[in-house]
């Protein structure tokens, strides 16, 4: 469950204040709104990359407002993906598990399981610089899901993809939603995406967050 309790954030030229939001456990929420209104800022605050000036952020009922990003157990797929240029696809999927010192057998099993679900098994040994947009997107999604996070945050994950790849990714995200049941907050401009995926819709306009 994701809960924002009167959260205020100042970021450069704009600020958001008194943001309240609740995404129940296992729900898939979509956050919409025009560009530059602070949707990414909200995601960054939830995963801990941006400090909030007041209010509380709760993940599964635990107040994580002052926690380090790495302690929050949140899978984050940023808009720019930010893949790791020196690692292979398999190393991306193993990264979070190695940090958690999981045994190698468990890591290997998780890599093959994720690669299978995401359809990237043939890419496992490749470096990420030669991947296509859709492939990179799958790797970023796999990296975020690898450690079975409590919450998944997706920042316009499909905006840079062509039509057919986007439809494939819709299917994939639906499959992830059904198989993992991870609580998800997905930022998008696309009504179509919201219709296909959302259990719940929020809209951010003029600094006010509303349930749509």
């Amino acid at each position: 469950m994701i809960e924002l309790d009167h959260v205020s954030i100042h970021a450069g030229e704009f600020s958001l204040s008194g943001i309240c939001m609740q995404v129940p456990r296992g729900h898939y929420a979509v956050l919409m709104g025009r560009t530059g209104r602070g949707k990414t800022t909200i995601l960054e605050s939830i995963c801990g990359l941006r400090k909030v000036t007041s209010g509380r952020i709760l993940i599964d009922g635990v107040d994580v407002t002052s926690w380090l990003p790495g302690d929050r157990q949140i899978g984050y797929v940023p808009q720019d993906l930010a893949l790791f240029p020196t690692l292979t696809v398999a190393q991306h999927l193993a990264f979070a598990l190695r940090l958690r010192k999981r045994p190698q057998s468990e890591i290997d099993e998780r890599i093959s399981q994720l690669a299978d679900v995401l359809g990237i098994t043939p890419l496992l040994g490749r470096k990420v610089d030669a991947l296509s947009g859709g492939e990179s997107q799958r790797v970023a999604l796999g990296r975020a899901l690898s450690f079975r996070p409590a919450v998944l945050l997706l920042d316009e994950p499909l905006s840079a993809l062509d039509e057919s790849t986007r439809t494939e990714m819709h299917e994939l995200l639906k499959r992830v939603k059904e198989t993992t049941g991870v609580t998800t907050l997905h930022v998008t401009h696309s009504n179509e995406e919201a219709e296909v995926l959302a259990d719940q819709r929020f809209e951010l306009n003029d600094g006010v967050l509303r349930v749509a």
Binding site: L49, G70, L99, A144
Partner: peptide, 17 residues
């Protein structure tokens, strides 16, 4: 690009890691 380090931090890294 510092973004990769940011994402690494969400995956469980401290700033040092």
């Amino acid at each position: 690009d510092p973004r990769a380090e940011d994402v690494a931090r969400t995956l469980g890294c401290t700033r040092g890691q």
